[in-house]
Amino acid sequence: MNPSELVPPKRRRTSQGRHPALAAAAQRRSANAQLRVADAITAFAGSMPFVYLHAVVFAVWMLVFEKSPWPTLTLIVSLEAIFLSTFVMIGQNRQATFQQAKADHDFVESEQELHTNTDLTRQIHQLTTELHARLVAGEERHSDPA
Rank of each mutant, 00 (worst) to 15 (best):
N32H: 10
T72H: 12
S78K: 03
V88Y: 10
E130Y: 05
L63M: 13
S30A: 14
R12E: 12
G46Q: 02
P3G: 01
L35F: 04
R11C: 01
D119M: 08
T74E: 04
R12F: 11
G17R: 00
V88S: 04
F65S: 10
E130L: 11
T14N: 02
E80W: 15
A33H: 05
A45G: 06
H125A: 15
E140W: 07
W61C: 08
Q27G: 02
H105T: 00
R12K: 10
A45P: 00
F65E: 12
V77Q: 08
R36F: 05
V136C: 01
L6R: 02
L53K: 13
R13K: 12
Q95H: 10
E111T: 05
A43R: 14
S30Y: 03
S85T: 12
M48Q: 11
A146I: 08
F65T: 09
F107G: 07
T14D: 06
Q92T: 11
R18C: 03
A24C: 02
L35V: 11
L6N: 00
A59K: 09
I76H: 06
A33W: 07
R134H: 08
Q16E: 15
F83H: 06
L127D: 05
A38R: 05
N2Q: 09
N32Y: 03
P71R: 04
F65V: 13
A40P: 02
E111Y: 00
E111V: 02
H105D: 09
L135Q: 14
Q34K: 12
R18E: 13
K102E: 12
Y52E: 08
E109K: 01
L84N: 02
V57M: 13
L79S: 06
R141P: 00
N93G: 13
V60N: 08
Q92A: 11
L63I: 14
S47K: 00
L84K: 02
Q16A: 15
M62E: 13
P69L: 01
R13H: 09
P71H: 03
F87T: 05
Q123D: 06
T86G: 15
A81S: 15
Q99I: 02
A25N: 05
F87C: 01
M1C: 04
A40G: 04
L35H: 07
F98V: 03
D106S: 03
R12L: 10
T74R: 06
T116E: 15
Q112M: 09
A38Q: 07
Q100I: 00
Q99Y: 05
H142T: 07
E80V: 03
Q27T: 11
F107E: 12
F87N: 08
D119E: 14
D39H: 07
F65G: 10
N2A: 05
V88N: 06
L53Y: 15
G17N: 03
L120H: 04
A81I: 07
T42H: 12
R122W: 06
M1F: 09
V88G: 07
M48A: 12
L127A: 14
A31E: 13
A45R: 05
V77R: 02
Q16C: 08
F98S: 08
T118S: 14
S68Y: 09
T72I: 12
S143M: 11
L22I: 10
R141L: 14
V60L: 15
G91M: 01
T116W: 08
Q123L: 05
H132I: 07
Q27E: 13
Q27V: 04
